[in-house]
């Protein structure tokens, strides 16, 4: 069985972190699996754990009355599910549901925040990685808002 630290170090969010930083992150982490349809996160719940997806696919959803769940985005292997653990009020804004069997590394957000608090070097290294992913997500969302494939998408 592979060491958890090894799996943590392989995930794109944390790839390239120094070995001791990986060890500290792994100290807040555990391996988890979810069956298809299981909720990883639920809107309104305390945002205490986020997930580094290793296999499978996770749907970020919001529930609408009369419509059921609306899928906003999907996250696959190498992606990260859950950002609300980073900042107060530490509460999930969306649901996250396993679309297929999912394997992930669950990271205790409070544990990681505490370690980053006492070790700003670790905190900065983590934050630059997190911001890079958030920026990419923001840019993708902005492009999706353009409705590129709408009426201006060409005649063929």
């Amino acid at each position: 069985m592979r060491e958890l630290a090894e799996l943590v170090a392989e995930h794109p969010l944390l790839a390239g972190l120094p070995g001791d930083a990986v060890t500290r992150v792994a100290g807040c982490a555990r391996n988890v699996t979810f069956g298809a349809g299981d909720l990883l996160l639920a809107e309104g719940d305390a945002a205490d754990t986020f997930y580094l997806v290793r296999r499978g696919r996770v749907a970020i959803e919001v529930h609408a009355p009369g419509r059921g769940p609306i899928m906003i985005e999907t996250v696959g292997p190498g992606g990260t599910v859950g950002w609300s653990w980073l900042v107060p009020p530490y509460r999930w804004q969306f649901d996250a549901r396993a679309m297929v069997p999912v394997g992930a590394i669950a990271v205790d957000g409070a544990c990681l925040r505490d370690k980053a608090e006492v070790d700003p070097v670790l905190g900065y290294a983590l934050m630059t990685r997190v911001v890079a992913v958030l920026l990419e997500r923001l840019q993708m969302t902005r492009v999706r808002l353009l409705d590129l494939y709408g009426a201006g998408g060409g005649a063929g």
Binding site: R57, G68, M71, G76, P77, G78
Partner: peptide, 20 residues
């Protein structure tokens, strides 16, 4: 870009599929 009831595929910009 926008899901619909019954869709079980990916949701997101096409570039999000390139990495995987």
């Amino acid at each position: 870009d926008v899901s619909a009831p019954g869709w079980t595929g990916h949701v997101g910009l096409v570039t999000s599929l390139l990495g995987d």
